[in-house]
């Protein structure tokens, strides 16, 4: 089990945004993190990558916590953020090179892989440009290439389908498929339910900073009493619950 979250409570200030969160992302599977705006998806991801410190609870990746062994913990994660922010002074080529250096990847072995990805995302002719000036979608592609060149055990992808063009989404899903087949765990937060339903093996439904339900589609259909319901229907049922309370 690559990612295990145990009773995680945390947030930005004194007020916790996520409360007593419990779920895991198994190896070789795609886990979709689903919830309304403000349900705590991005906050959860920020806790996993260590930008926020948990108030209580623990996050382990491959049996290691950030406090025990920060380098091994970070080495195991690759992350594609929702809002891409790149180094303003580095060219595309230098971003890729720096990533290889930081993750101690063999440059001769990695470059062919990277070149193939650049070709796919139509970035190959922009190696000497500053990606800071790219459009949002292109920046996201740069971050995807940086993330997917690593041998991380856990891939965190925050809202990947909003800035990318349809071709980009398709190419990203192909990369995700490749990593899943190789045995990595993938955690993806999204609002785009149709795509999530197609790609994900299991779902984690967040509501008000807690886990409302987890499981694959059949299990969710049972839990919400919606046999043959689509993920859309289940999602709506969950939001209505919130309205009743």
């Amino acid at each position: 089990m690559s990612l295990v979250i145990n009773h995680l409570t945390g947030g930005y200030g004194a007020m916790p945004v996520i409360k007593n969160l419990d779920f895991s992302a198994p190896d070789g599977e795609v886990t979709a993190l689903i919830g309304l705006n403000g349900a705590g998806k991005s906050t959860t991801i920020k806790h996993i990558i260590g930008l926020l410190k948990p108030m209580s609870g623990a996050i382990t990746i491959g049996d290691k916590t950030l406090a025990d062994d920060p380098d091994a913990y970070r080495q195991a994660i690759a992350y594609v953020p929702e809002t891409p922010v790149l180094y303003p002074e580095l060219t595309l080529k230098e971003h890729l090179e720096l990533t290889m250096m930081a993750y101690q990847l063999d440059q001769d072995q990695t470059w062919p892989k990277v070149n193939a990805m650049l070709e796919t995302f139509r970035l190959a002719n922009k190696l000497d440009w500053f990606p800071d000036n790219f459009s949002k979608g292109m920046k996201q592609k740069v971050m995807i290439v940086c993330a997917f060149m690593t041998d991380a055990k856990l891939f965190l992808i925050d809202e990947p389908f909003t800035g990318l063009d349809p071709l980009g989404v398709h190419d990203l899903l192909a990369l995700v498929e490749e990593k899943r087949a190789a045995g990595a765990a993938i955690l993806m937060s999204t609002h785009i339910l149709n795509t999530a339903e197609e790609v994900a093996d299991q779902f984690v439904l967040l509501k008000d900073g807690g886990v409302r339900a987890t499981g694959d589609l059949t299990s969710l259909q049972r839990q919400f009493n919606l046999p043959a319901g689509r993920l859309d229907d289940i999602y709506l049922a969950m939001t209505k619950e919130a309205a009743h309370e």
């Binding site: 990558i49 260590g50 930008l51 920060p70 380098d71 091994a72 913990y73 970070r74 080495q75 994660i77 992350y79 953020p81 922010v85 790149l86 180094y87 720096l98 990533t99 930081a102 993750y103 940086c146």
Partner: peptide, 14 residues
Amino acid sequence: AYDEIVFTHLYPLS
């Protein structure tokens, strides 16, 4: 200068 950039926290660098 680079503390605002997520890579800085992500990279396994001490």
